[in-house]
Amino acid sequence: MQSKTPRRPGELVFNLFVIAASLFLFYSAYGIAGFDALSSAGAIPMMTTALMALCGVLILRENLRKSPNTAEKIERDILPIPVIVTIIAITAYALLLKPLGFIPTSFLFLLGLMKLFSGRSWVFSVAAAAGSVALIYVIFRLIFTVLMPQGVVPESEILAAIGHLFGGAK
C-alpha cells in the first residue's frame, strides 16, 4: 500500500513509541504464563501484542518511504496551545476533584476553558459555566445518584437538611 501523503511532523516518534510499547506489552504478556498451553491466560494476549508489534514495524517501513511534510509545523498542526492547555486542564481537574469537590472544580474548569477559548465577557462565561454545572449536577447527582466527591461544599448535609424541611423524616 504505497500512499503519496507526506509524513506528518512527529509521526516517526509516535511510530517508534508504538513499537516500543508493543514490545514491552509482548514481554509482559509472555510473563503471564509463558508458552504454557494453548489454553493459557497468556495465549491470546501474546498473539495480540505480537501482532501489534508486527504492524508497528510494517507502518514504520511505510513511514520511512514517505517524505517529511515541510508545510506543517508541530506547534501549529500537531500540538497547538489550546490542545496542551486542555490536556493540562483535565489533569488538574482529576487532581483537584477529591480535595476541592465536584461543584467548585467543575465550575473552575468550565469557566477557565470557556473564558480562554471564547474570549467573551466574564459575565457570559460565569453564567454559562454555572448553568452547565447546575444542569450536570441535577442529572448525575440527583437523578442518577452518582456520588461525586463532595470536597469543601457540604452538599449531602445540605440536601439532607432540605429533605427534612420538605418531607420530614422519611
Binding site: 483535565i90 474548569f109 468550565l110 476553558l113 477559548f117
Partner: peptide, 14 residues
C-alpha cells in the same frame, strides 16, 4: 464550539 467543547469535556469526565 468555544462553549460546546469545554462542556463535552466536562460531560466526558463526569
Amino acid at each position: 464550539r468555544t462553549v460546546l467543547i469545554p462542556l463535552i469535556l466536562l460531560l466526558s469526565i463526569v
